[in-house]
Amino acid sequence: MNWPLKKKTNGDGTSNGHIIEMLGITKVYNTGKIKVEALKGIELVVDKGEFVAVVGPSGSGKSTLLNLIGCLDTPTGGSYMIGGEAVAGLDRDALADVRNRRVGFVFQNFNLLPQLTALENVELPMLFGGVGRRERRRRAVEHLERVRLGDRVEHRPTELSGGQMQRVAIARALAMEPDIVLADEPTGNLDTGSGSDVMSLLSELWGQGRTLVVVTHDQTLAKRAGRIVEIRDGLVVTDRRAVA
């Protein structure tokens, strides 16, 4: 039925290697009387394996952009291809599947479920992705070990520090082995120490070949990225690649 949509380009299956391809993307928030034009025509192409830092003043549209990239929301105008697949016209379930399989999200405020243990939190995306119970558990433990929380699997978020919570969130983002990891100010709620831990973890991910898009105010983290995209008033104003 929706077989053509499922023709998932496995990993690097995009013809041109572009994992994210945004052309003229606009986003208008329609809150009753006021219309807020958060994005005014974003052009952004990201290749597989890139590490992109998105910077810009508060309210410039960074979060909006990240939500669109992660299919949490749909653009008002423009065209968006993720891994070679057009997002426009996907229904709610198909978008849910894209979020589940292709995208891993890391939020500023962690967004862990407080009533679940670290392990259960990491298992959650796999539950929605239809991964079997045993496999789910095995992979969740493995990911928690990778973020150095092997000794905290049964802890609930309230029993963890901010840095630990964000590491659980990173393990959760990786649970379904997504192509793209998106992080919206991942160190924003952390002290400097935990912040740099989280930054190192994200850099490691990049080292393992994942595509990484991180919104940050943190100059140090931004400098680790291979590419810095600056947003102002809903438009890309500069797009610099570090000289290799």
Partner: peptide, 15 residues
């Protein structure tokens, strides 16, 4: 909030 997180993580409406 919890429902929002689940949906963000890829829970389908049916779930």
């Amino acid at each position: 909030r919890e429902i929002g997180i689940k949906i963000a993580l890829g829970a389908r409406g049916r779930a």
